[in-house]
Amino acid sequence: MHATGTTGVVMAPSVFEGTASTVAMIVLLLEFLMLRSALLRAQIRLYAAQSAVVSILAAVIAHGRSLPELYVLAVLSFALKAVLVPWVISRMMRDSATEIAGSGALGVASEVIVSIGVATFGFFAVGALHIHSTVLPSAALSLAVAVVLVSFVLMIVRRDVISQSIGFFSLENGVSLASLVVAAGMPLILEVAFLFDLLVAVVVFGILMRTHHRHVSSLSTADLTSLRG
């Protein structure tokens, strides 16, 4: 009658795996917070926090699995995604008087419920593939895919350029998380190329945001309906 714990239906992961999964889970929870935050600056800060968590995870793996290359990646991705990109977007926002994101296409509670559904789908869809990694528990891969899917929901339901671009950048965070799980050993030069691409993309997003703001005088994308058919 009295179970001793370790004989339970679900075996406990090791301390390292548990910590890594928890950190990955924090990435997903931050994604959900982005979904609910109404202030654009709060959203940017959440993105910075999420990037920082991903970088920390890279450092944790570098330490736990003896992959010193990942330290470099962790530092680079922290500098780029947790510091530089949020700073660039904040600069872009300074010209605009808008502080509060327009209401999304759905209420927050419905958004969260939809996202829970989407994320759960991602969980089990990836879980069913049985892709196992030597670096991280496979739950982290499912979490990464869930982050990607929820970021899609974020981009779909939000109607302003800041939220949409933050959604895209956090999608990239999800992909980074996935790459830590299944491709931690990927040559550093490729990872750096990916990061560099992201930086250029940020600049282009910024340019187009400004163009948009100049024409529409707001950050909202609700009026972008003239091109159809």
Partner: peptide
């Protein structure tokens, strides 16, 4: 998510 991670293993 607590339940989900458990059933995925690694939770």
């Amino acid at each position: 998510f607590a339940v989900c991670t458990l059933f995925l293993g690694g939770g």
